[in-house]
């Protein structure tokens, strides 16, 4: 399984006076089992990019290959693509509509034309995978807390058994506890189900602890595409495009400037702590 974007361009309102490019010559290669953080601020093109990956938006030029097949080709089955590349949008309120959570999760698999038994089995499985309390299965999704709604929304996509899961800012509007819970859940889905995950966020700190590759978008272009350590080492360029490395990266830079012998490429709290302890013991 792989998604390959080759020279993808997207221009909104092409052929009108208001034409503006949203994606410019994007080349990305996503392999099986990766955990990717897609970062960029509002208007950087990241939302447009992920909608290309499941065929909701078509490129103005360039090609997208899923499993080696061009998804823009005549007769390519979009339904299968969307079941394989699951996309969870930012606000669960945009997709929840049924009278109870279980029925809502059934919506995706039912659209795939599966037999009723299989649909229910998958819905049950998906709700369990996201750690949703069985007592709430038959409750209205509208009465749930923000974090729980998001779980149901994620289950609604997982029930289609996608091989790639794309989540658009899954932590927006949640409090710190809710954020931590959802990120923990996504990380465990990646580990246990061996599913490819693309996590879209504007917070470096959110993704730094989890992902093994970061793609930074800026003004429709891919600015960086590398492991976290390497991306954060460009913290000055990141600042120029309105993004910031995690606070610990800056701490380590400051410490190095102050003459401490520390590795400035650390990205997580744990690593930073060990580095500082090591440096102090040398004193």
């Amino acid at each position: 399984m792989s998604i390959v974007l080759s020279h993808v361009n997207h221009i909104y309102d092409e052929d009108t006076a208001m034409a503006h490019p949203a994606l410019i010559d994007v080349n990305i290669d996503i392999q099986d089992g990766e955990f990717i953080g897609l970062i960029g601020h509002t208007g950087s093109g990241k939302s447009t990019l992920i909608q290309h990956m499941n065929g909701l938006i078509e490129p103005t030029s360039g090609h997208i290959f899923f499993d080696g097949k061009d998804i823009g080709e005549q007769g390519f089955n979009k339904k299968t693509l969307r079941a394989n590349v699951g996309l969870v949008f930012q606000y669960p309120e945009h997709q929840l509509f049924e009278s109870d959570c279980f029925k809502d999760v059934c919506f995706g698999p039912r659209n795939l034309g599966l037999p009723q038994k299989e649909v229910e089995l998958r819905a049950f499985e998906a709700l369990s995978q996201v750690g949703f309390d069985p007592n709430y299965f038959y409750q209205s999704p509208f009465d749930l807390s923000g974090g729980q709604k998001r779980r149901v929304a994620i289950a609604g996509v997982l029930a289609m058994k996608p091989r790639v899961l794309i989540l658009d800012e899954p932590t927006a509007g949640l409090d710190p506890k809710g954020r931590e819970d959802i990120l923990g859940l996504i990380s465990s889905l990646h580990k246990e189900m061996k599913i490819t995950v693309i996590l879209v966020s504007h917070s470096m700190e959110d993704v730094a602890d989890y992902v093994d590759r970061i793609i930074v978008m800026n003004k429709g272009r891919v600015a960086f595409d590398a492991p976290p350590k390497e991306v954060f080492s460009h913290y000055k360029e990141l600042e120029e495009i309105g993004l910031a490395a995690p606070q610990v990266t800056y701490c380590m830079q400051d410490l190095a400037t102050a003459g401490f012998d520390v590795d400035t490429s650390v990205t997580t709290l744990q690593e930073a702590k060990e580095e500082i302890l090591k440096a102090l013991s040398k004193c």
Binding site: Q247, C251, L269, K273, L277
Partner: peptide, 15 residues
């Protein structure tokens, strides 16, 4: 209380 503490404060606390 499940409140996120700024990373520096947390780092100092760990140290």
């Amino acid at each position: 209380l499940k409140l996120g503490v700024p990373q520096v404060t947390l780092l100092a606390h760990e140290l």
